[in-house]
Each structure stands twice: as structure tokens, then as C-alpha cells.
């Protein structure tokens, strides 16, 4: 299983049940996960494509879509931040 976390406005369009899923077949990198998500959940894919999105793997910032992911990972999707 992998754990997906959708923050901010992504949380509004991510369907319930997407928080914990089996690592999909053919998905071994962040880029492949993005592609799989966009195909399965077009609204979410559009929201993520329309805004700068950062990905966090196991609480560490990912800098490369070729980064490998594995069973047990937690991957978070962050829209632009607005603290303060």
C-alpha cells in the first residue's frame, strides 16, 4: 500500500478512498504516479496541472519526477503555500 495526502485545494477534489491504495501496476516513480492519478481522477489531474505542485515523499521534498516510490511510502501533494 502507499499513502497519498492531498493538501489545500487538492483535498477538495481528491475523492475519498484515495488516501491509501495498492501501488498501481506499472507505477514505480513519482512521474508515473502523477500520470496514473491524472488518468484515474481527471479533476485532480487538472487541478495539479494548473498550479505549481510540490511532492513530498516520506516527509522529504522530492526534486525529481524520476524519484522511485515503493510500497509503504507516504506521498503528499502540495499546492502553493499560504502561511502567515
Amino acid at each position: 500500500m502507499i499513502h497519498l495526502v492531498f493538501l489545500g485545494k487538492f483535498g477538495d477534489v481528491a475523492p475519498a478512498g484515495l488516501g491509501e491504495i495498492a501501488l498501481p501496476d506499472g507505477v514505480g516513480t513519482l512521474g508515473e504516479l502523477n500520470h496514473w492519478l491524472a488518468e484515474r481522477e481527471p479533476l485532480l489531474g487538472q487541478a495539479m496541472a494548473a498550479t505549481p505542485t510540490r511532492m513530498i515523499v516520506n516527509q522529504c521534498v522530492a526534486h525529481d519526477l524520476s524519484q522511485a516510490i515503493a510500497d509503504g511510502d507516504e506521498i503528499a501533494f502540495l499546492p502553493p503555500m499560504s502561511g502567515g
Binding site: L7, G8, K9, T51, M81, S82, G83
Partner: peptide
């Protein structure tokens, strides 16, 4: 304002909107 991982959403009589 730009780098803290926090996300604000304002709500009122005219609806809700995420702030960027």
C-alpha cells in the same frame, strides 16, 4: 507567507476560496 506548508481558505456569505 510563501514557504510555510500551510493552506488558507476563506469562507463567507459569498462562498469559499483558497488563498495563494
Amino acid at each position: 507567507k510563501t514557504d510555510a506548508p500551510l493552506w488558507k481558505k476563506e469562507s463567507g456569505p459569498q462562498g469559499a476560496r483558497w488563498i495563494e
